[in-house]
């Protein structure tokens, strides 16, 4: 086991066009925000080494196009995913309403072996805009939805300011790891404790 090559955790970021998927990914991986990212066409991914409880993993983060017309490509991109990140813009109600579609679309296209327990994470992005005055989706509403879908962990983020991005992706990595088949990895049993310790500003990452 120890000699296995570093384990790859595949994460898919989904959400409406313009909610900030590309920005979040770049903020996390490159610690940068740019106003000039182009609209994503097709798909791309970035990788980052993450350490979870003394073990190193390669997080492969897939950034896809938000335009619904391109969703049929998902089949090819979603397969083998270990975790799915659903992003919405707290200032745009429609982007929140669509989370359900994105989740279902993902389950259909990726057809994970255990859809009931497949790890999702929800991110409410762009909380920096207008100092939060233009937000239209209340935290209560999101949390209710997350609870109804099997306690999906929820984070509020700003890709622009880099706020909570690191914490969110820590949780994402852990959940992705949880999805890996048991026999593939050796998990120290302290993971739960460590998981909770790193949480900030979140409604509870159930790691």
């Amino acid at each position: 086991m120890a000699s296995r090559r570093r384990m790859l955790l595949k994460v898919i970021i989904l959400g409406d066009s313009g909610v900030g998927k590309t920005s979040l990914m770049n903020q996390y991986v490159n610690k940068k925000f740019s106003n000039q990212y182009k609209a994503t066409i097709g798909a791309d991914f970035l990788t980052k080494e993450v350490q979870i409880d003394d073990r190193l993993f390669t997080l492969q983060i897939w950034d896809t196009a938000g335009q619904e017309r391109f969703q049929s490509l998902g089949v090819a991109f979603y397969r083998g995913a270990d975790c799915c990140v659903l992003v919405y813009d707290v200032n745009v109600m429609k982007s929140f309403d669509n989370l359900n579609n994105w989740r279902e679309e993902f389950l259909v296209q990726a057809s994970p072996s255990d859809p009931e327990n497949f790890p999702f994470i929800v991110l409410g992005n762009k909380i920096d805009i207008d100092g939060g005055n233009s937000r239209v989706v209340s935290e209560k509403k999101v949390k209710a939805w997350c609870a109804s879908k099997g306690n999906i962990p929820y984070f509020e983020t700003s890709a622009k300011e880099g706020f909570n991005v690191e914490a969110a992706f820590q949780c994402i990595a852990k959940n992705a790891l949880k999805n890996e088949p048991e026999e593939d990895i050796y998990l120290p049993d302290t993971i739960d404790v460590a998981g909770r310790a790193t949480q900030q500003q979140s409604s509870g990452c159930e790691c």
Binding site: S17, G18, N35, Q36, Y37, K38, A39, Q67, V92, K94
Partner: peptide, 17 residues
């Protein structure tokens, strides 16, 4: 509204360099 906002989001991300 949806179209307009989609276009608004895209033009600011188009060849700005």
């Amino acid at each position: 509204r949806e179209r307009k906002s989609l276009i608004d989001k895209d033009v600011v991300r188009t060849d700005r360099s």
